[in-house]
Design a protein around this nucleic acid. Structure first.
Length: 348
DNA sequence: AAGCCGGGGCT
DNA sequence: AGCCCAGGCTT
């Protein structure tokens, strides 16, 4: 049996039943694939359901308000995915008359669709022979063939891509792609792979040479940096002061509370002595809401403190990005304005 | 080629 | 504490 036949055979018995596998509709497949980028199946599945229900076809998606799409996306992370989806949907309506494209060459041109997603959409919808290359495939191939080239290097991407394209099944490219990803996700797992019950035990180079834990090889990225955020709750009558984040940073263009960021951690006294604090909040009493909260992103550690501003009739020198929003509390505000889930988690 | 962009679960 | 997840875009 060939590699592809064997992996498909494994998949037939052990594969997962997932909602987005019951369709050939490229729009539905696109929806699922974007949601699942760098996102676990269990985390993305509820979002997939909401999006399919609210936007059953690409025209509905294209006609939606970007704010509504982002609100439904809240908590998933990598928010540019949602914005790119909106742009892509509009492009499909404008250039493909609302018929979602299926050819690799067409879908790969849509914003937010790269090599992996284009291969997935074209193979799953019309069985175009395009091998997917995701974290699972890298891992399975690196171990099976004992390849130690870093998977996140330029050479690694080329080597693994051509290898994947050689291995893909001629008859069932779509099923094969599902199969190898499921095999990586369920069986050939990153940390504790199930080698003892693996159908490739006798062929897998990494297993035979006892290098399973060393593969795949990955070049390490930069260490996370630490940031210190000081958030302020300022209420004026029935309104609360909110701030819209700018570009070029995390959570770009999403709403949050007014914020002072500092290089180092500061206590209440130190904070009140800052020029930036004095400029806007001079004379206010500062009430800590909770202790320091640590919020970990993949590339930075955010240490946040939350304060309530009391006895401050109005902020001074209000910044451009600051605006008052009518709200009895932040929880209600989240329903009609965008607040990333980070805030919802710690303030209520 | 390297950095940046989230949130969550596992070891 | 570090790694990984159905990656893609920008510089």
């Amino acid at each position: 049996m060939s590699f592809s036949e064997k992996i498909i055979s494994w998949y037939t018995k052990n594969g997962r039943k997932l909602p987005w596998r019951n369709t050939n509709d490229p729009y539905i497949i696109w929806l699922s694939e974007i949601i699942l980028q760098q996102t676990r199946v269990e985390q993305g599945a509820p979002y997939f359901d909401s999006f399919v229900t609210k936007y059953p076809d690409v025209r509905k998606f294209a006609d939606a308000e970007e704010g509504d799409i982002l609100r439904l996306w809240q908590g998933l992370g990598y928010y540019s995915r949602a914005r790119n989806m909106h742009r892509a949907a509009k492009l499909v309506v404008a250039e493909f008359q609302g018929n979602f494209p299926t050819r690799y060459a067409d879908v790969v041109q849509l914003p937010g669709v790269g090599d992996y997603t284009a291969a997935a959409i074209s193979s799953f919808s019309v069985n175009e022979k395009q091998a997917v290359l995701d974290g699972n495939v890298f891992r399975v191939l690196a171990r099976y063939f004992g390849i130690a080239i870093p998977i996140n290097s330029g050479e690694g991407k080329k080597v693994f891509k051509s290898l994947a394209q050689e291995l893909i099944s001629n008859n069932n490219p779509g099923v094969y792609n599902h199969a190898i990803m499921d095999f990586g996700a369920i069986h050939c797992k990153p940390k504790v792979p199930l080698c003892e019950t693996c159908v490739f035990r006798l062929e897998c180079v990494a297993y035979k040479e006892n290098r399973v834990s060393e593969l795949p090889v990955k070049i390490k990225g930069k260490a996370s940096r630490n940031r210190f955020f000081h958030y302020f709750v300022h209420e004026k009558g029935e309104s609360i002061l909110m701030s819209k984040r700018g570009d070029g940073d995390v959570w770009s263009n999403l709403f949050e509370l007014p914020l002072i960021e500092t290089e180092d951690d500061l206590d209440l006294v130190g904070l009140m002595q800052l020029d930036e604090f004095m400029t806007h909040f001079e004379g206010a009493d500062l009430l800590p809401i909770n202790g320091q909260v640590k919020h970990i992103l993949s590339h930075q550690n955010i240490y946040a403190r939350f304060y309530r501003l009391e006895n401050l009739p109005e902020v001074k020198e209000k910044k451009e990005e600051w605006n008052y929003f009518l709200s009895e509390n932040l929880d209600k505000l989240a329903k009609h304005k965008l607040i990333f889930s980070f805030l919802n988690k710690y303030i209520s």
